[in-house]
Amino acid sequence: MYKTMSPRLRRRENISGYMFLLPSLIFFLGFVVYPMIMCIWTSFTDANMDINTPTSFIGFANYKELWQDPVFLKGLRNTIIIVVVSVPVVCIFSLWVASAIYKMKEGPLSFFRIVFYLPVVTGSVAVTVVWKWMYNNYTGIFNYLLKNGGIIDKNINWLGDPKYALACIILILLTTSVGQPIVLYVSALSNVDHSLVEAAEVDGATNTQAFWRIKWPQIMPTTLYILIITTINSFQCFALIQLLTSGGPNYATETIMYYIYYTAFKLSRFGYGNAMGVILAIFIAILSAVQFRLAKEK
């Protein structure tokens, strides 16, 4: 179509195309692309948070230091645990909920969709402070319920005990992560070609067979998208850590994202923090590519 246009029209398309794009492009280049470049560039320098201090280029020194930094390694380990636990759980849970509700009438369907989305809308601060109270050693309901149910005999300091703290964080993260995948799966499942499902049923296929052979391949793109957004979300787990444990006790809940914040704000090591940011971005890019590859193969 472009080739058949007259030169005058082509020029008009070029000019108007960029005019419409310009306002958005300014924001995008200024507040997304520029900081990304800054992030990569300063990760090779010893920059600190104060813009007026001179900085010098130090090559890969920040990156080398990272692999000897026990806190970073602990954060990396915890971040990987969070991702490995939460991604499959979120996917399976939301697929199950979505397949149980997608055939319902509009009213109940909306009700369930809203309920599972509410923890996201409520906001990380409000959600976190109420969970902090529920986990509380003396006044929290978890200790009360478990003690009265005879499951534990002594109060557990959930967030203060390195054995439980990370699991407690993951539990909250899960409740705030399933909302969007459920909405996506409901929409994907209701778009599945139902004549195929019916044909399979006529041929005597069981529900399970119909699901894996017909529906599953058709919702694969949605699964892939959910895998990727959940991975990104779990990698970025920050508010929960900052508000509940500050990475403690004894770094049991330290995550990369929290350590980046800590390095930049508390230690004022801007370049070092950004080197971690680059590593985090590379990790996410690799994982997304792998997931994409796996989904394509199937």
Binding site: V32, M38, C39, I232, G273, N274, I284
Partner: peptide
Amino acid sequence: ALPKQVILIP
């Protein structure tokens, strides 16, 4: 596809 929070410090 990149994590949004990586750009926050810069």
